[in-house]
Amino acid sequence: MKILVCVTSVPDTTTKITFTDNNTKLSKAGVTFITGPYDDYALARAVELKEKLGASVTVLNVGGAEAEPVIRKCLAIGADDAIRVNAEPRDAYFVAEQIAAIAKENNYDLILMGRESIDYNGGQVHGIVGEMLGIPSISPVMLLDIDGDTAGPRTAKITREIEGGKEELEAKLPLVLGCQEPIAEWKIPNMRGIMTARTKPLKVVEATSTDVLTDVSGYELPPARGAVKMIKAEEAETLIHLLRTEAKII
């Protein structure tokens, strides 16, 4: 079985986001970049499936050289090899085109992604890739099992989250999935993994298309909230009154 895991390199979740260059660029000063938390779930499940069923796991990132520490970390966690498409990820369509082009060459049985990137939060790349490849896309996936039978196309058993609940799904591979917890526990690389990751192949390729359909022209920070109004615990009832008369929301 061949698994492709698509990962993003994104600001750590504790980052206070700020912009530079007249609000046109993310300020990267002092920012730690991490694997997208959802992509980390996808990778962890891919490595588990490899251990359980036997599989090759390839990690793919569309991004500049600054994403390589994140890619190496994925290799240390258990991916076998990696591909970086050397291009600035301009919009979801552009990224999806790069991923689909690589998938067409390599016929993966399973393409695992995060439910959404935590920078743009689009949750779109998996669906566009699915459409481009003409295969189903399912997100957000909470549980994933693949049957061990290798006679025909394997079947995936999937739990997907929906509003206020979940649904159980079944589909034949190949599939594109957007993953979230509790699909697997995040994995931390061990010393041996870190050592072997250094020599695992990381192939850099150039972008195959240039379509950018949505351009970001600028950024903005949310306005600061006004000062907090404190209410004494003994007078908690006042809050309900204020929500009705002052905030007018109940």
Partner: peptide
């Protein structure tokens, strides 16, 4: 945005080669 719409927007963008803004 909903769990159904989320499953549709990207497929639509792929089909129609459309520009897309989420959220």
């Amino acid at each position: 945005k909903s769990s159904l719409a989320d499953a549709m927007t990207a497929r639509l963008a792929g089909k129609l080669k459309a520009g897309l803004a989420a959220n």
